[in-house]
């Protein structure tokens, strides 16, 4: 098992390298922050920018070299640097927002905010998907089944940003009616709140409810369809019929024989749910005014800040790959025929 995990972790490296190379090339080639900044300065001062300023900008952002060279220096930090770049040395590179903006500080504080939202939402959507799928399958072709199926299709068709805006305004209305703030609809925690990890977490709970609900409803429907299909298949299989025939109680058959097997295909979709929630987090963070990674990446995209975009690409890539690894391990837990050595 340990060997398996180590081997799989090592296999992530080429995938991450490939993904970062592709992203770096695309983002870098399509943006030119130096030119944008020069244009900005020209607009504000009304005078042509001296060549020395351009050179200084280029050398501080490493734009005085080619794209492959820039990628290499971003990855390794080897060579002629200002000491602020090199992923392997734990440095994320300079931010074009100036030296006051430290990418590694931003990323590390925002990461937990986003991870909290994404993990809660993914777990909640998988949980509700299993529940809805199993109920649908057990009561196949009943009114409950049709209702659940239709509701699932409805949420599948609903854009997260619309649902998010709707729920946010709805929560504001509920707060107004009740005359208190049951739901916090702006920000990810009380402004300026300080405390240890647990206190921060407790403080963030009222802020977490509505965004988690939005992401959960946005992500559960696809999985619940697969859960229903696999549950139906298992319930019609011979060994479930055998278990029934030898007189096992219905609840036990469902729980021990049917559900456990029916969960296996759903484990495949857990990483998909995770990457969907990462994407959805960008939207919900924007709507609910969170200072998380998703909003950070949006700002970086708008500014054409390649190093900051790459930080997001890398982190979201690692999160998704860890999700894949966990789902592979879950396979082994759910399916006794699979052995990892």
């Amino acid at each position: 098992m340990v060997v398996f995990i180590i081997r799989r972790t090592l296999m992530m490296i080429p995938v991450l390298l490939g993904a970062t190379i592709l992203c770096f090339a695309l983002v870098d080639l399509s943006n030119d922050p130096v030119q944008d900044r020069v244009f900005e300065i020209e607009q504000s001062t009304g005078e042509p920018v001296p060549q020395s300023t351009i050179d200084a900008l280029e050398s501080s952002w490493y734009y005085d070299r080619s794209v492959p060279e820039r990628y290499w220096i971003w990855l390794t930090g080897l060579g002629d640097t200002n000491g602020d770049i090199g992923l392997l040395q734990g440095k994320w590179g300079p931010s074009i927002e100036g030296s006051a903006m430290d990418i590694s500080y931003e990323v590390s504080t925002r990461f937990w905010i986003t991870l909290r939202l994404v993990l809660f939402a993914t777990l909640a959507s998988i949980g509700i998907a299993i529940l809805a799928g199993v109920v649908s399958a057990v009561k196949q072709y009943s009114r409950t089944d049709y209702t659940l199926t239709f509701v699932g299709f409805l949420f599948l068709a609903m854009p997260v940003f619309w649902l998010g805006s709707l729920f946010k305004e709805g929560a504001v209305q509920i707060n107004k009616v009740l005359g208190s703030t049951v739901f916090q609809t702006y920000g990810s925690g009380t402004t300026g709140f300080r405390g240890n990890g647990w206190e921060v977490f407790v403080d963030s709970l009222p802020f977490l409810i509505v965004p988690t609900l939005v992401l959960m409803l946005g992500g559960y429907a696809a999985i619940s369809r697969y859960q229903r299909a696999s549950m139906l298949e298992v319930m019609n299989s011979d060994y479930v019929r055998l278990a029934r025939a030898k007189g096992v109680r219905n609840g036990t058959v469902m729980r021990r024989h049917a559900l456990r097997t029916a969960l296996i295909p759903v484990a495949t979709f857990a990483p998909l749910a995770l990457s969907g929630a990462m994407g959805g987090a960008m939207v919900t963070e924007r709507i609910f005014g969170w200072r998380g990674l998703g909003v950070y990446s949006l700002d970086a995209i708008n500014a054409g800040d390649t190093f900051a975009v790459m930080a997001y690409v890398l982190i979201s890539g690692v999160v998704v790959l860890v999700g894949v690894l966990i789902s592979d391990i879950l396979y082994g837990v759910l399916d006794p025929r699979i052995r990892y050595e």
Binding site: L16, V27, N31, G279, V313, L321
Partner: peptide, 14 residues
């Protein structure tokens, strides 16, 4: 592994 919204957004934004 590449986040879909980020890469499409980055290209469209550029």
């Amino acid at each position: 592994v590449i986040p879909f919204l980020v890469i499409t957004g980055a290209l469209a934004g550029a």
